Simulated assay, not measured.
Amino acid sequence: YIAYTDHPYPWLTARSIRNRRRSIEKWLGDWRPERIIAHTLWPVGELARSLSKRWKVPWTGVVHGHDVDVGLTHSTTGKRIRSLMESANSMVFVSERLRTTAESAEVQTKKAYTIPCHSEMDEEWARPMKKWNGRWRRESIDILFPADPRRPEKNHYLALQAGEILERRGWIVGMTTLKQQPRSIVWDRMIVADVTLITSQRESGPLVARESILCGTPVVSTNVGDVATYLPKEFVIDNPTPEALANACEAALEKDWQRSPVTLPQRVSSKMVSQQWSSLLQGLEEEE
């Protein structure tokens, strides 16, 4: 939140981020890119646009969620994010929902593409999904809440309520949360978890759901992002209540995942996403 200019002590503003141009040029030396890709819009998109004009090269902006879901309607950054999306030579949205949301807000992009984030797991952490073994409602279970509990949109309280219901039924529930850990630690925690529980109010993926599956851990989630396209219906909760989430967690523990494994869609594979980006950049280069 300190990145917003209405914060009492903002340390990132449009002007301050643009003023980093010279430090970027000093760091790059004599090398200059043929294209700039901004992994997000606010605030680094301001720098990308400024460098694009300075170096006379095109730039592409990428939207992962917050820029559209929150920033586009924000009283301070909304106009700037709209301006960034409309001035970029091309925009990439990681989900079709984000793209249609921007279009419904009448954002006039020059070129728009939908390319998801890829999901791939190193062999060290990749595991097949398998059924939980233990004494029913008598043993300890580890539930992974794969987000920073301080972020309100992640709805940590709802996860705690679901855990409380499970404890009333006899389970000894441990709940692990994630903050700013390296990916290797995140994957370690996914491997040891019995269930990954996602209670978010909004997501573009979420990537942690796919990664959890690749680590061999079943996922229970609210109906956000694209989880409904690959998770079994009983584990995607449309009207999330603590009771419904607790029931789904027990169903995930009970299910024989070796007989009915979850298969992620081909469109999120590293190979497919790489091909999409290559096609996008080659196509833009040919147009120029």
Score class of each variant (00 low, 15 high):
Pro33Asp: 12
Ala228Val: 08
Leu231Arg: 00
Ile185Val: 11
Trp125Gly: 07
Leu280Phe: 01
Ser184Gln: 01
Pro232Phe: 05
Asp194Ala: 09
Val236Ile: 04
Thr196Phe: 04
Tyr113Leu: 12
Asn19Tyr: 02
His7Glu: 12
Leu144Cys: 00
Tyr1Ser: 14
Ser119Ala: 15
Ser200Cys: 01
Ile37Tyr: 09
Glu123Pro: 02
Ala126Val: 00
Phe145Val: 01
Arg49Tyr: 09
Lys154Arg: 15
Ser140Leu: 03
Arg168Gly: 14
Pro128Ala: 01
Lys271Met: 07
Ala48Glu: 00
Glu25Asp: 10
Ala3Glu: 14
Asp148Ser: 10
Thr196Met: 10
Met129Ile: 03
Phe93Gln: 06
Gly205Glu: 07
Arg49Val: 09
His156Ser: 10
Ala162Trp: 11
Thr76Trp: 07
Thr177Gln: 01
Arg168Lys: 15
Val68Arg: 04
Trp27Met: 11
Arg127Val: 02
Asp69Leu: 12
Gln201Val: 00
Gln201Asp: 07
Lys79Trp: 08
Arg169Thr: 04
Glu243Asp: 03
Thr222Tyr: 12
Ser119Lys: 08
Pro218Asn: 06
Val273Thr: 06
Glu243Tyr: 02
Pro58Arg: 13
Leu264Gln: 06
Leu51Cys: 13
Leu214Trp: 02
Pro33Thr: 07
Met129Ala: 04
Val227Ala: 02
Arg54Pro: 10
Gly29Glu: 08
Val70Glu: 11
Glu120Ala: 15
Leu41Val: 05
Glu120Gln: 15
Leu264Lys: 06
Glu285Gln: 07
Thr109His: 14
Ser260Tyr: 12
Asp226Glu: 15
Gln275Arg: 14
Gly163Leu: 10
Asn19Ser: 04
Pro152Tyr: 05
Glu25Thr: 05
Leu207Ala: 09
Ile191Ala: 06
His118Glu: 15
Arg210Thr: 08
Thr229Phe: 11
Arg151Lys: 13
Val94Cys: 07
Thr40Phe: 03
Val268Asn: 05
Gln275Asp: 11
Trp31Lys: 15
Ala244Lys: 05
Ile198Gln: 00
Lys111Cys: 13
Ile17Phe: 04
Ile2Met: 10
Gly163Gln: 10
Val273Cys: 07
Glu86Gln: 10
Leu207Lys: 11
Ala244Asp: 04
Trp27Ile: 05
Ala162Met: 13
Asp194Phe: 08
Arg127Ala: 11
